[in-house]
Amino acid sequence: MPVLIYIDHADGHIKKSSYELLSYGAGLAELLGTSAEGIILGTFPEDLSALGKYGVRKIHQVSQGHLNESDSQVLTQVLSEAVKQTGAQVMLFTNNITGKAIAPRLSARLKAGLVSGAVALPDISDGFVVRKNVFSGKAFANVKVQTEIKIISLNPNSFQPKEVGGTAEMVELFLSPVSSNLKIVSTEKASGEIPLSEAEIVVSGGRGLKGPENWGILLDLAKELGAATACSRPVADAHWRPHHEHVGQTGLAIAPNLYIAIGISGAIQHLAGVNRSKTIVVINKDPEAPFFKAADYGIVGDAFEVVPKITEAVKKLKSAH
């Protein structure tokens, strides 16, 4: 009755959030007195036994090439079989794009209760209760799962990966192929950028930067910090920055360790997308900007003067270490 952990991958890379999930799964297995096992669908260029260092002893692989890029209906059928074959009592996903596509389907298929957007290990002192984010980050709910099989999708960046050593045994899982009703026509990816949802540091800009031509100071700081870049809704709507950078209620919701907001006033719709960030820095020339109320650190000042100086200070710090 293992805990089964979905290992998400694309273009030959394991998602960073999957390392968090492996550690979360290992922690959950320990709590339940069972083993943690990974599952990866499709082919992968490297041997994955090293992932055992996160506390999993076995990784099941379904090496069917078409599963590398497939739709939720196919992946759900395959995973449903995998849960049955492994006898898993809990199935874990990251609450990312892949998890959001598959976990609800699998929940309905297996009649397995789903908690999406979990932020902590379950409390099993009275049933099986999982803490999750609700009200767009403004509150938590403790959700009891009543079914025998349980599914949790964990919010990215809410559990620290922990290396405990060891290797995992790779096991091929033979499942009958499933055909898809859906054709993937094309995929477009912005290359070389740090994906926003995986970034530990995010530098974000708003209307206060006055125009796309002024983004250089923000990009310089992001580069120095190894950060991903984001923007507010008006900036994306004005096409100053691409839409996939938009964070907020209607854009992406992110939870980096450090969110640096430059020239963003902090409307409640923007906060809904970033209020799960562990530390928030706000740089704004308006001392009344509502964002300061949600911030941990702030500078009231002109971004065009302040930001380049911060970049310089980061540079100095990096060269001193």
Partner: peptide, 29 residues
């Protein structure tokens, strides 16, 4: 129904913003 909400919680209040003077950005770093 397969799940039920046992309780809600509000996140702990933020300690409040620590402001750094605009002429000392290196202090923020």
């Amino acid at each position: 129904s397969m799940t039920s909400i046992v309780s809600f919680e509000l996140p702990p209040a933020k300690a409040g913003v620590k402001l750094v003077p605009a002429d000392q950005p290196e202090e923020l770093v």
